[in-house]
Amino acid sequence: MTDTPTLRSIDVALGQRSYPVWIGPGLLDDRARWRAMLRGRHALVISNTTVAPLYLERVAAGLEGLQWSAFLLDDGEAHKTFDNVGRALDALAQLGATRDACVVALGGGVVGDLAGFSAACWMRGIDFIQMPTTLLAMVDSSVGGKTGVNLPAGKNLVGAFHQPRAVIADIDTLATLPQREYRAGLAEVVKGAAIGDLPFFAWLEQHADALAARDTAPLIEAIARKVQYKAGVVARDETEQGERALLNLGHTFGHALETAGKYTTLLHGEGVAVGMLLAARLSERLGMSAAADTARLQRLLERLGLPVAIPPGMDPQALLALMRLDKKNTAGTLRLILWRGIGRAEIVGGVDEREVLATLHEATAA
């Protein structure tokens, strides 16, 4: 990682391939930096109706001289659909995009996932650049090449691994991020520490108040440390055959909660926060970890303003049914990411559904 007072640069190294993740202020206006990553003369900017009025004009200034257009989604997880992928591909067709075209994803995780999947599909794969404008996207979904869309049956059931050419994480865009969405992004930061970095978890405990207040220096440090951790995991296991699955701590529970709430009750990061705590409680129930670790995780999540309870009205049996659709499952059995305490996550197959259901019932009654 190369550090300056205002910029962090991290390389995601994948064998013969690599791409930069730039983190700092003013990066959308640093056109010489990111324009150099575009190889052809066509570009499609995919954004949404919330982000585009704020930042599209600045990106457009960097596309001067190219043939480009914009495709805007409505805001929200419910719009990460095949129908919108079709519309994005139609926009590429209308642009006359060739094999050296580039899709620019300007927005949060929904925009990045759909834009990356559209780029993976067009002519069997064209370049795309991530310009995340939410904290959650900066620390997680923009890095690692996971792209996809949702189905009514569940979240992210269709997708492709398609790595970006670059990630441009301009922290100035976080100034317009609503407080709830900012806090949801902090859940993914906590997740990285909970999986495999106990010293980082302790650092987060020490700086929780500053992070909740959006202080710039600790925020940049937290983003960089989380991205550096994820970049290492992705480099070792790009297509999630082993270690990378650990990055899904809390996600099997969390995705079920999001789906049950029709993507309106919980934001993704909120689902991850509740899901991590449920995974910790299940680990404790199975004798894998101590109650003290569960309590420590809950305290940190609460200090960061994150939810720690299943929303009212959700049925444990229905949540378990949704969990059975998770992509990590094998041979009809639940395969979950659990832990043996903070910083020691592991993949556990053949998890007894009765223990999962008991954990859900206990959390619902609490």
Rank of each mutant, 00 (worst) to 15 (best):
M1Q: 05
M1N: 11
T2N: 14
T6F: 12
S18V: 04
S18K: 12
V21W: 06
V21E: 00
W22L: 15
P25E: 12
D30I: 00
D30E: 13
R31A: 11
A32N: 03
A32W: 02
A32H: 05
W34I: 06
W34Q: 07
W34P: 08
R35G: 10
R39T: 13
R39N: 03
R41W: 12
V45M: 12
P53V: 06
L54F: 04
L54E: 02
Y55E: 00
L56K: 04
E64G: 13
L66P: 11
W68Y: 15
S69F: 08
S69I: 10
A70Q: 11
L73V: 11
D75V: 10
E77W: 03
K80S: 12
T81S: 14
T81W: 06
F82P: 07
D83R: 14
L89D: 00
A91K: 07
A97C: 15
D100I: 08
C102S: 14
G108M: 02
V110D: 07
D113I: 11
A115Y: 00
S118Q: 05
A119W: 01
A119N: 08
A119C: 09
C121K: 12
M123F: 07
G125V: 14
D127C: 02
Q130H: 13
M138V: 02
S141K: 10
S141C: 04
K146L: 02
P152Y: 08
P152G: 09
L157Y: 04
V158H: 01
G159M: 10
A160H: 12
F161D: 05
I168K: 00
I168E: 00
D170T: 07
I171Q: 07
T173A: 10
Q179D: 15
G185H: 09
A187E: 02
E188F: 09
A193D: 04
G196V: 00
G196S: 12
D197F: 04
P199Q: 00
P199R: 07
F201Y: 13
W203Q: 06
H207S: 10
A208W: 05
A213F: 09
E221T: 14
E221N: 09
I223E: 06
A224K: 07
R225E: 06
Q228N: 12
Y229C: 01
A235M: 11
E238T: 09
T239N: 12
E240C: 04
A245G: 05
L247T: 03
G250Y: 01
G254V: 09
A260K: 00
T264D: 15
L266E: 04
E270V: 03
A273I: 05
A273H: 05
V274Y: 01
V274E: 06
V274M: 04
M276L: 12
L277I: 03
R281W: 10
G287K: 04
D293H: 10
A295L: 13
R296V: 09
Q298M: 07
Q298L: 01
L300P: 01
L306N: 10
A309P: 01
I310C: 01
P312M: 08
P312K: 11
G313S: 03
A318K: 14
L322H: 10
K327I: 09
K327D: 02
K328V: 02
T330Y: 00
T333Y: 10
T333L: 11
L334K: 07
L336I: 01
L338N: 11
L338I: 13
R340H: 15
A345G: 12
E346A: 15
G350W: 08
E355D: 15
L360W: 06
A365L: 13
